[in-house]
Design a protein around this nucleic acid. Structure first.
Lengths: 337, 337
DNA sequence: AGCCTTTACGAAAACGTTATCGATATCGAT
DNA sequence: ATCGATATCGATAACGTTTTCGTAAAGGCT
């Protein structure tokens, strides 16, 4: 049982007294093999515990039956989207693989371009790209769907939240609480979502006749670490804002940590709103008021869209935008003068 | 740019006017290639946008630089563990891949056995198995670590929670609240964790001089769907228990749904404790009292252990057991007669 | 009996890489 | 000028599959 060498299709062929091609045909349920031979071959396969090598199969075969999700990192947002994708693919004939290549060496040309090139057509039959940052991809016949992509509609078929409206909800909530000096901590500038949320922020500020102090507009990269300096800037600047809208929850959670370090009370001195409603936001102290986006549904919709693309069907909608909603917890409070 | 055919190493060789071997050597930073040639080759690679095919490379090369996490499904528990693994692997030279093959056709011989056989040695350099159910795996030289495995210590190097103690905490909590008729909804019987939690339940019942009514001991499979019938049994049986300890949160959440359907009030009529403390438990109505296990830490520890194994180091401990703790929310209440 | 179709199987060529090893060319030393 | 060492590169054989195509045998038909 504890064999060190892999048992190959050749071993099976030899043991069964037939050719390699026959084994392959049996494995893939091709016809042209007699019942009798099939039985014998299957018995040998079972006995030797033969399983075909994925890389060899991928290399040769046209289809692999696996759908890949390419993500920058296994962070909370991607994890939730993944759950949704898995749910939608459950019962389909496809296997699901998630590959995180963000930290890879060659970030210059876009991690997703590299990953797609490496995996497309051989390892993968199709892919869902989460937060891709490149404009074009060198593959036309390869089915792909983007979630929270770089470009807006028109680029790849994509699924996203209504980022602008969500941002508007966030600012409106703060304005309703009486806040005037509202700072903004932005996200990865290469993503449409970050730009849209900033637009929503500016729209809503204007709609409420509030001035945008450009000193209070800073940007991170959606990651926890990337939010450190922007958060410090906002919390320590001369005329500190009384409220902050962070473009995603991970950044907002970093603001909470920084505030704690700096002795700034949230929501006593500063109110804070995030975006996403990742599970972690529920556990923070104080609980984070945030704009919830339906991450699981986004994943499911993306998977469904991809399935349609793979079936050569023209999907009814190639730019799917899902609604957000405000979730009020403890990180926001009425401004007291 | 929109080329339909893949650009192979041969194309690059032709374009650069050198042999295929030279391209390969440049790609892999082997020496024996002059600076001058390297520059020219790299330029062509850049120009053509060449990226080597993962499957071809996997097939031939000894190492791939990829660590795989094999999970039955992208459900909350596995997702949290994945976050921990990703965190520990961040900064390491390895890429991370998660493959979900549980739903695969051939569940008979154990999904992880199939997956390992398919991926080991070619696609993957090493693997972390989450909740594997097989006793032995046909690979000795392939580094593997199990999380929440079938067997207890001695099988594969593994990381797990202190399941028995956790279960004890759960029952003790219910007993302290005055409950006597305490039901148990078990998990996948092929996993050690499920057996340990049941043992912990029985231990604690005995320790509190409570009888275990075998009619109140039912079993699911840790999944939401699998908990449906056991949950119904417990909630509709003649002499209904006043409290239920579910072996994991997913099952507990199903109990909440069932109770809602059946018009049973939680915690008014039945108290409920889960196990895991997955993010979803925080959002349930009522909030689920549960035994928290450090899923992220479990993932990190597993990754660290795997790294040691891959470096041929003998790890200080091959059976890592992490502590649990009781988290009281709203699904449990003092028994009122 | 002759011919054509069908069935069952095998030989061999891919798939795109990496690794081994041999072949030049260059150079310094005798 | 000869020799041996060193640098640079290319042919070629793998890696483990799938697929195409050919072939032999068997069967059905006139």
């Amino acid at each position: 049982m504890l064999s060190t060498a892999r048992v190959t299709i050749r071993d099976v062929a030899k043991a069964a007294g037939v050719s390699v091609s026959t084994i392959s045909k049996v494995m893939n349920n091709r016809d042209g093999i007699s019942e009798e031979t099939q039985r014998r071959v299957r018995a040998v396969i079972e006995e030797l515990g033969y399983v075909s090598s994925e890389s060899a199969r991928s290399l040769r075969a046209a289809r692999t039956g696996v759908i890949g999700v390419l993500i920058p990192d296994f962070e909370p947002y991607a994890s939730e989207v993944l759950k949704g994708i898995a749910r939608a693919l459950n019962g389909s004939p496809f296997e699901l693989m998630a590959w995180s290549g963000g930290a890879g060496r060659d970030a210059t040309r876009g991690w997703e371009r590299q990953l797609v090139a490496r995996l497309a057509g051989s390892v993968l039959d199709a892919a869902i790209l989460v937060a891709p940052s490149v404009t074009s991809l060198p593959f036309d016949s390869f089915p792909m769907v983007a979630v929270d992509p770089h470009e807006g509609p028109g680029y790849l078929p994509n699924v996203r939240a209504d980022d602008r409206e969500g941002a508007r909800l966030a600012v409106e909530h703060l304005a309703d609480l009486g806040h005037v000096r509202i700072g903004f901590l932005g996200g990865r500038k290469d993503l449409a979502s970050a730009r849209e949320r900033e637009r929503g922020y500016r729209d809503a500020m204007r709609a409420h006749n509030l001035d945008v102090d450009e000193d209070l507009v800073v940007r991170g990269d959606y990651s926890r670490a990337g939010a450190t300096e922007p958060a410090r800037t906002l919390l320590t600047c001369a005329d500190r804002p009384t409220a902050i809208f962070a473009a995603n929850d991970l950044s907002a959670l970093r603001v909470i940590e920084m505030a704690d370090e700096l002795g700034v009370d949230i929501p006593g001195e500063v109110s804070l709103v995030g975006f996403d409603d990742i599970p972690e936001s529920l556990r923070s102290e104080p609980g984070l008021t945030t704009i919830a986006q339906p991450m699981i549904d986004i994943g499911s919709e993306a998977a469904l869209l991809l399935l349609q693309l793979m079936a050569q069907e023209e999907p009814p909608e190639r730019d799917i935008k899902l609604p957000t909603r405000l979730v009020v917890r403890e990180s926001t409070r009425v401004l007291r003068p």
